[in-house]
Amino acid sequence: MLNPRWTSIYLRLGALLLALVFIIIILLASGVSPFEALGHIVSGSIGSTGKIADVLGAWIPLVLVSTGLLITFSAGLWNIGIEGQIMLGAIFTTGTIRLLQDSPVPPALVIVLAILSGMLGGALWAALAGALKTFGGVNEIFGGLGLNFVATAISLWLIFGPWKRPGVASMSGTEPFDAAFRLATFPGFRLSPWALGLAILAVIVVYFLLRGTYFGLRLKAVGKNPKASYLLGIPTWQYMMLAFVLCGALGGLAGAMQVTGVYHRLIPSISSGYGYMGLMIGMLVNFHPFWAAPVALFFAALNIGSIQLPIVLKLDSSLAGVLQGVLVLFVLLAEGVRQKYFNRKAASS
């Protein structure tokens, strides 16, 4: 009889293989050599030190969001509103810098305050989704989705209204900040050591929070069975709210990093879909904190690698999203197959 651990590994490898076969079929159907396309993704992501730095740059917001979502997933919540929380983080960060950039406050302090206010913005937006759930009975999926669209509207309104560029407002965003208000980068690269450090710190803190503290344990109890936890004396809704706020703060931090470290202004699509990707990563790693960071790195590499596809092969860069999605789908199905056909044997052996 198969060892259950190996069954799981075989099934996952099978899922990976099926995802690859699916992508190859899709690529063949669009008349492209699959190996050429995949080759471009590889060379576009790890082909040079500049590309690797870009991958790490994309990893920062992605891993912040993913680790934040592990907290809400632990509490049994689907925080789809994470996209809006990233945007609000970016909006608050931009607002703080705009407010203080002409004041005597030293720039370094302005950046710190801006990042903290970004975390606050994300946390507030998440608290709104949480309040809708706990006090309004609105499922967090729908509340969150609605709030995402509202967040988009707020950022568009700011870009085209009060914060518009002198002259003409455009989709290119608000006026870029002076160099003093940007996070320092590694010389010659677009990667900021500060942002990278914060992201790594967040991964470590969340890992220990979920794995090594009483709080994490109780949070998981709330996620597994809210009613039983409530009867055992865990303040259920307070824990759920806290999960929302912590996740929102990390989402807001991701937004703050995009503003201070990458774009140096507010742009309309500042969240770049990282929130939804974070949700997919959470599902792919089956909510295990340890694997979130490497999987986020893989997803970031796919995203960066596919950027050059439209230029080189006239393919849409959404291929990265298709690859990620198909992979998550097959892994979910493989897990379902394992539960249905192999679990009973594992239990009896």
Partner: peptide
């Protein structure tokens, strides 16, 4: 398979969207 309906549905929502843009 009794996999979470929310999980599969969400992944399909995102994947089908990207697939439509790609194809």
């Amino acid at each position: 398979l009794k996999v979470s309906q929310v999980a599969v549905g969400f992944v399909l929502a995102i994947t089908c969207r990207d697939l439509s843009y790609f194809l």
